[in-house]
């Protein structure tokens, strides 16, 4: 008597043909090595899981890019980054769900709001501590992170409850040679690649980028060369936060449920990804994020969903033992 989607019974035509002899053997086990029926479509299944991993990886990359850029220039791990990402998701959601904005306008609004937020955070919480010991700025970043989470949970800001995001467009699946790809997956990948190229362009082909790289190398030398360090750092935070906002909106569309604490876990994973790729190195963030996504997804799919994070992070530790500066990290010691 179901509503729209009552499925037909499926138990008659279980599609075990080629390897039907293994059926009962497999069925008595909860986790087979390949968590699927041993059919001819194993390859397609594996590719499908790799695409799942790509989506997750690109999602981490969206956040990791901003993390690594700010670190690269300021040498500060901005723990509030995940929470700026959350604010971005909320503003985007309010934009296209509540205020009736078209999606691009909502994304731009969200990026603008977060850019301002990023600059303000830097002015209030980080700038006064710039010449204090590193640990002070780190603690300040944690403070900002907690402040944003709990401030946004207040009833008159976003409220503590989960909000369901109505997607501004429906998810469409395309079947390419038996592999299913969705428009959201494509959108996320294109955005990340676009952001990556833009950042590389900005850093290596523009004057601001040159100033950023200079500041990154040596604050004082940069100031002596006539670079306005304060404004360069402000710009860095503005761009990093705007990137987080764009990521937040995409994230809210891909996983349509948001709440004020949504930034913690993705922020943590993105940070790990940035470290894995070599923190401060832009392409490293994307590479690290993609590896994270794959390891997590493939672990959950083919090894054990219970041990997903344990195995994923175990592998990361192993990688870092071999290459302490990350995969693309520079291993040479700094010149003194």
């Amino acid at each position: 008597m179901g509503g729209g989607e009552k499925p037909p019974p499926r138990f008659k035509n279980r599609s075990i043909t080629a390897f039907s002899g293994f059926g009962p053997l497999y069925r008595n086990r909860q986790h087979s090595l390949l968590g699927v029926d041993m059919g001819v479509d194993v390859l397609e299944h594996v590719i499908g899981q790799v695409i799942n991993g790509l989506q997750l990886g690109f999602m981490y990359a969206l956040i990791a890019l901003g993390y690594t850029m700010v670190y690269g220039v300021v040498k500060l791990i901005n723990f509030a980054h995940g929470d700026v990402f959350m604010v971005g998701a909320f503003v985007g959601y309010l934009g296209f769900n509540q205020w009736g904005m078209p999606v691009p306008v909502a994304v731009l609004t969200s990026m603008a709001v977060c850019a301002i937020l990023g600059v303000v955070i830097e002015k209030i919480a980080y700038r006064p501590l710039r010449y204090a010991p590193k640990i002070a700025a780190l603690i300040s970043a944690l403070g900002v992170s907690l402040f944003l989470e709990y401030f946004c949970s207040l009833k008159f800001i976003f409220g503590p409850n989960y909000r369901v995001v109505q997607r501004p467009f429906e998810e469409v699946h395309w079947q390419l040679a038996g592999i299913s790809i969705s428009n959201i997956q494509v959108m996320v990948m294109v955005t990340v690649l676009f952001m990556l190229l833009m950042l590389q362009y900005l850093l290596y082909r523009t004057k601001v980028g040159m100033a950023m790289r200079t500041v990154s190398l040596d604050h004082d030398a940069a100031r002596l060369m006539g670079v306005n360090v304060d404004s360069v750092i402000s710009v860095t935070f503005a761009i990093g936060s705007a990137l987080a906002a764009a990521g937040g909106v995409l994230y809210a569309i891909a996983y349509p449920q948001i709440q004020p604490f949504m930034g913690i876990m993705p922020g943590l994973k993105a940070f790990t990804a940035a470290v894995l790729g070599g923190i401060g190195i832009i392409p490293g963030a994307v590479l690290g994020a993609l590896i994270m996504g794959q390891v997590e997804t493939l672990t959950a799919a083919f090894l054990s969903s219970q041990l997903r994070d344990a195995i994923a992070f175990g592998i990361l530790i192993l990688v870092l033992l071999v290459r302490p500066c990350g995969i693309l990290g520079k291993t040479e010691t700094e010149k003194v």
Partner: peptide
């Protein structure tokens, strides 16, 4: 928030 890996497996098992 991402359950795609296990859900893809379950989709195969029907």
């Amino acid at each position: 928030v991402d359950f795609s890996a296990v859900l893809t497996n379950i989709a195969q098992q029907k």
